[in-house]
Design a protein around this nucleic acid. Sequence first.
DNA 1: ACCTTATTATGAATAAATCACAATAACCGG
DNA 2: CCGGTTATTGTGATTTATTCATAATAAGGT
Lengths: 155, 155
Amino acid sequence: MTSTAASAATTDKWSAQLRAHGRRVTKQRLAVLDAVDHSPHAGADEVAAIVRATLPDISLQSVYVVLTDLTETGMLRRIEPPHSPALYETRVDDNHHHAMCTGCGRIEDVDCAVGHAPCLTPSNTHGMTIQIADVLYQGLCADCAAKPDTPGKTS
Amino acid sequence: MTSTAASAATTDKWSAQLRAHGRRVTKQRLAVLDAVDHSPHAGADEVAAIVRATLPDISLQSVYVVLTDLTETGMLRRIEPPHSPALYETRVDDNHHHAMCTGCGRIEDVDCAVGHAPCLTPSNTHGMTIQIADVLYQGLCADCAAKPDTPGKTS
DNA sequence: ACCTTATTATGAATAAATCACAATAACCGG
DNA sequence: CCGGTTATTGTGATTTATTCATAATAAGGT
């Protein structure tokens, strides 16, 4: 074990990206990036819990600061599902969407159905210049569909 | 002036719908429905302010209760844009989406690009049974694009 | 009109996220 | 390698949106 938790290779990758965005390389940022990378769709609470495995004294507020800053730089993507705290993921460059199970709340990545650029060309944009189209699918995952009394089930 | 604020016709329409959903017809519910109908994409605060024109003593909490209940019955639709309180609208039966201006935050309705049913058939649903696809477009409205220093502008 | 029960009012409580400012540590230059 | 500057983090309080618990009220059937 030569490194703390992440491999040196990924650490170097994050470091390079941080520098490219004019950010200093701190162990907090590396730990947050590693946590989000290994636990996609984790919320701030979960990220803090994971990060505390290596940085036991980090505060939730600091995790928020790091997450917010990394989201602004574009190194992280924030998903904000209804009735759920914001979730984060490291997949930022490909255009993909998300499916949320209305039964258990789990989130899965869904590749864009059409291609790369925003999937839909809306018919009437009211003069708006559309930059991104975020799609949130909602439905029942296989597990919840199997259970007898899941909320939102058709019968 | 034979009615308070809404026309008797629309009031009757709401009343019938409320009864159809097994709900009692109260002036609070009618006022909230009327407010949301006349101010689409209004938040709970705004709805409360509008409702207070006819029911000055209604509390914000009661507005929340009514909005939540009507949303559960399907008479209202709730939109939850990032970094903004939940918004409500009375258009519930047609499948339409929303476009939010990243500059000023205004919300516009956007008709579904493809047709009626969920616009997109995702390529990989991880075993989920998709029921709805909610699309949130983000971009700059004409007003914000004209201003010189709008956040999110390309140059 | 009365009674039952849904609905509303009231006040407190919760959860997510942000802010201000002090303490710390990265990075740059020597 | 060492110190100084400045970004970053820590700490604690604060804000905002929303929900909860319980008491008061009023809708609708008989």
